[in-house]
Simulated assay, not measured.
Amino acid sequence: MQQLSRVQFIMVSIWVFLGTGFLTLPFTIGQFTVRDAWIVPLLFVPQGLIVAGVITLFRRTFPGQSLVQGCHTAFGPFRGKIPSLWFLIMTLVVECFVLREVGLFLTATILPSTPEYVVDMVFMIPVGYAVYQGVEVIGRMGETITPIGMGITLLMSLLSMQYADLSHYHPVLADGWTPVLRGSVVVWMYAWLLMFVLQLGGAVQRVGKDLLMVVLIITLGGFIAEPTITMILGPSAAYTLYPILEVVRTIRIADFLERLDTFYVIGIIAGIFLQCSLIHYAFATGVGQWIGLRNYRPVVWSGAALVWAGSIFFIRDEAMFLDYVRYVGWGYLTLTGIGIPSLAVVVHRWHRRRKA
């Protein structure tokens, strides 16, 4: 069985959150608060600790097992198919939304004349190939891409500081905590994307301390991005679909170096590739375990075709995508992330006590 090193696990897990998070979170948080958006990443720390706690508890209760396998162990081979099926449905829905966001972003930035369904189809080909090769390939990609992506993000933030205006911060909390808390609900939804690492099963050995590292790195990334957006764009951030992209577009060095947004687009696509690959791996392995296959590979390409079709037919347009992120998705992902693993843990431990 292929294994992920601790470094690979951390780097891949970061992009499960930040892949589409870099695109949608700044805008959706800006719909609730702009001036105090810098506080929202700090609230991710307790949220991330809750998610990490649930994942760690499940892993300790079902060592070496994936979420689907753990459900079948806790509830039995027949009844366990019900909660695991719900997890697979939510995995499919999330991957469809991630893939659709890729199409929306690329057609809005660099491929305006290309149909979205063509962009989505082309994007799923390398995703399917990476998943077919195994989780170790995804881990190696994360090990390569993450340092470059983080370095570019930090460099872009520093270069944009020449346009910073600290007055956009004031007055702090003039509208109270309600807008900040409403913005943090969206971050709470994205935090539960980390539950897909449960499907890695025996591919990772220890996750507790590594997930704490993931939470801290994501918090640091948000604490760099949100203040930068606020200082550069100010109130206009609430009306910009891709605020970080607009920040990067403001950078001009002398009279010859500009259009650095090209590097940002490349970095975002690489990050979403890792995010989509891990989610698709979770979906393919989960379906394989659910129907009793010895190997998940027969599911990879048929699952990719299903995700591609779902991204086109489930999500009509950008407005529907953003409405799901702001108002609906957090409920479904919270129910799935807390409910299924926690219920499996409780039932399994109850059965063990009865037998003892």
Rank of each mutant, 00 (worst) to 15 (best):
M11N: 10
I14K: 01
T20H: 02
L23N: 01
G30Q: 06
F32L: 07
V34D: 03
A37H: 01
W38Q: 08
I39L: 13
L43H: 04
F44A: 08
P46T: 03
I50E: 03
I55S: 01
T56Q: 06
L57Y: 09
V68S: 01
Q69P: 01
R79E: 07
K81Y: 04
I89P: 02
T91H: 02
L99S: 07
V102N: 00
I125T: 11
G142E: 04
I145P: 00
T146S: 07
G149H: 01
T153S: 15
M156E: 09
Y163Q: 13
S167F: 12
H170G: 11
D175A: 12
W177C: 11
W177I: 12
T178A: 12
L198R: 00
Q199C: 08
G208H: 10
L212F: 15
A238G: 12
Y239T: 13
Y242D: 04
P243Y: 07
P243E: 07
I251D: 02
R252V: 09
A254M: 11
D255A: 12
D255F: 10
L257V: 14
F263T: 08
I268N: 02
C276R: 01
S277G: 07
A284L: 10
G286Y: 00
Q289E: 15
Q289N: 10
R294P: 11
N295E: 15
R297Y: 09
A304M: 08
A304P: 01
A305R: 06
R316A: 13
L322G: 06
W330R: 08
W350S: 15
W350M: 15
K355C: 14
